[in-house]
Nucleic acid binder design. Structure first.
Lengths: 231, 231
DNA sequence: CATCTTGTCAAGTAATCACTTAAATACTTG
DNA sequence: CAAGTATTTAAGTGATTACTTGACAAGATG
């Protein structure tokens, strides 16, 4: 049995401090798994049922349910029941801020993340980006076509004002209806969503001038830029 | 057999996506331990050597070194050598933002965190708080005494402009020199630092009007409010 | 009510993590 | 270069975590 120094006594109980910081770390623990990070990234688009989430992250429903519980315990998610389904959503805006901070730090400072991103998103050499602010200005001044290449349900739940819904799977079908002399900007779920990169590569290979928004719809909305609802 | 959109492609994507999000989750993993959270909270005050950190979190130097490596790997810390010592510091401002987001979510939404905080900091019922902005205004208009109750080395490394250094251990000695008719505001390392709470309780028990700043020096500095250096 | 759908819980296994002690490095100073 | 200090690495152990399969619980619907 070791005796605590007088310094520790003045600082309060060591065990209590440890417990408090363990409690604070619970929040980080909730995000400390690639699968749970995928869930948060997905739910930044809007609420989803357990089954939808399980499909999206390619895990069993039981395992997904387990992860969701961990995220709720960490305070990152809320759930609500609607009929036989339970829908999960981000608890509030500070969760989106937390996820954004994690992404920023990872992109700036985690060794090898650029390679992992390239492996998933494809070579980004040919994919130029537009910032939110630049795109907002271009939309106002005209002369740009904005494509929302997410699944159409996500477009319906909220999209950039003036954007056209062209899910990536249907892009080929819409190529003919795009004017060839206007720049196209594609966007999707966020900086680590593959749809916009794929769309830009496809468009460029067909002779269009195309770039991607450097992040996605959630960031656009969070920045207070104009959005619209419905089909 | 090169079919686009075949199952093989999707499975390849899946592995790459998992790897990418595992990489993003590395950042959260770095914070996902109470001891590492304590380290980040401490380093928000400024850089520290391994030994100082080990003492502060009450762990062996070897174990602390291990935790520090994990934090560096997650991109949260940088280190520099000075003579025989190695000093660690937060890598940049987004790490402070990350830690602030974690604290906000934990305080708002983690069940039982209020009890853990009370157990460490003591009952906060009698400890009223002042916001940063209110304190900044009060300092400008005069009529308030600001006490920095952190160890004097931390005061020297940076403090709120106009604050007086009164380490908590020396508070009793300074009581006589404080005017009884002016409000006293104490601050320390942050919302989960115990010094300011202890100081306010001590001052109030001696008849002073006293409150604590609701967060601490790092948040003050991050908000761009006036600071000063040196003794 | 019985039955269906959706989601959660339980038990088990392999992998990872936190911490310990002991030894090895990296640098400074004599 | 040798000695000394500060920090990292290695090896080992008990605890925790992620995921699997199979069973169970809560509502919705006929």
């Amino acid at each position: 049995m070791e005796e605590r120094g007088s310094q520790d006594d003045r600082m309060g109980d060591r065990a209590a401090k440890d417990a408090l910081f363990d409690g604070l770390a619970e929040v980080a623990k909730a995000l400390a798994s690639g699968r749970r990070a995928e869930i948060v990234d997905l739910l930044a688009q809007g609420e989803r049922s357990v089954e939808e989430i399980a499909t999206e992250i390619a895990q069993s429903v039981a395992n997904t349910s387990h992860h969701l519980r961990a995220l709720v315990r960490g305070g990152l998610l809320d759930s609500r029941r609607d009929g036989t389904r339970i829908f999960y959503a981000l608890a509030n805006d500070s969760v989106a801020a937390l996820w954004a901070a994690v992404r920023t730090i990872a992109a700036d400072r985690v060794a090898g993340l650029d390679k992992l991103a390239a492996a998933y998103l494809g070579q980004r050499d040919g994919v130029d980006v537009v910032s939110r602010d630049e795109l907002a200005a271009r939309i106002n001044s005209g002369g740009v076509i904005v494509l929302d290449v997410r699944p159409s349900a996500e477009y319906a739940a909220g999209h950039i004002s003036g954007a056209r819904s062209v899910p990536i799977a249907e892009l080929r079908r819409h190529l003919a209806s795009l004017p060839g002399d206007v720049e196209v900007v594609a966007y999707c779920r966020g900086p680590y969503c593959v749809y916009a990169d794929d769309a830009v590569r496809e468009l460029r290979s067909k002779g269009f001038t195309a770039r991607r928004l450097d992040d996605g719809y959630p960031e656009w909305k969070r920045a207070g830029l104009p959005t619209a609802l419905g089909a």
